[in-house]
Simulated assay, not measured.
Amino acid sequence: MDAELAVLAGTAGTTLVTLLTTEAWQCVSDGITSLWRRAEPERAEAISAELEVTRTDLLAAQAGGDVESGSELGAEWQGRIRRLLVTHPEEAAALRAILDELRPITPDAPAVTQHATASGHARVYQAGRDQHIDQR
């Protein structure tokens, strides 16, 4: 699997878990379920049910002050989505579209997307904010 799809799966897992406890949770659930419905229709209902369980678990963890569960659940969904993309790489565009729709309602959504390629003796410096390079 190429690195771009792995990053996409990571972003999707984080976004999904971040939004499952907001008013946008149904939109997230519908989007992710539709992804499975196209790629693996026989698993779509199970995925929908797993999203509900994840939401319930996350809400209970937050109520109990458990701050680690969010990242653990995000990693679980990242893995599921990554495995789906490995088997069905054609769904990457659909996943990007879902994430684009969710971006305006994602709290603290990153405003910067960066891609770079270096070859030969080239160097790439990227920063989402301030960057100071003192090279002599």
Rank of each mutant, 00 (worst) to 15 (best):
L102P: 04
T33H: 08
Q126H: 08
P107G: 04
G31Y: 01
A44P: 06
G79W: 02
D2I: 08
T113A: 07
Q62I: 00
A92V: 10
A24W: 00
D57R: 12
D2K: 14
A3T: 03
S119E: 13
P107F: 05
S29Y: 00
G10V: 07
H132E: 11
A12V: 04
E45M: 12
E101P: 02
I47Y: 08
T113V: 08
E72H: 15
D108S: 14
T18W: 01
A118F: 10
T87R: 15
G13S: 04
V112I: 09
S69R: 14
T117P: 01
L58N: 05
T11A: 06
Q62L: 06
V28K: 01
Q26T: 01
L95Y: 11
T54A: 15
S34Q: 15
D130S: 14
E52D: 14
G128C: 05
A92N: 11
D66P: 04
G31V: 01
S119N: 10
D66I: 04
G31S: 08
S71D: 13
A63Q: 09
D57T: 12
R82I: 00
D57E: 13
L73H: 06
L20F: 00
W25V: 00
A44G: 10
Q135Y: 03
A39C: 14
P41G: 15
G64A: 10
D100H: 06
R129A: 10
P110H: 07
A9Y: 03
A97Y: 05
V7R: 13
A9I: 02
D2H: 14
A6P: 00
S71C: 10
A127D: 06
V67H: 14
L85P: 03
W25F: 02
T18L: 04
D57F: 08
L19F: 00
L59W: 00
I133Y: 08
D30Q: 06
T18D: 03
D30V: 05
H121C: 06
Q78M: 14
E101S: 12
S29R: 13
A118G: 14
T54H: 10
A75W: 08
P89M: 14
R37G: 05
G31R: 02
V17F: 02
G31I: 01
G128P: 05
R136M: 08
Q131T: 07
A6V: 09
R43E: 12
G74V: 08
R37M: 12
G13L: 04
L5G: 02
A109W: 03
A75S: 13
V7F: 02
T106P: 04
E90W: 13
V53C: 07
S29E: 04
E42S: 15
H88A: 13
A39Q: 10
E101H: 10
I133L: 15
R38C: 11
T14F: 04
R38T: 13
R37D: 11
R136E: 07
L59Q: 07
I81P: 03
V67C: 08
G64D: 13
A94I: 05
D66Q: 06
S119W: 07
H121G: 14
T11V: 07
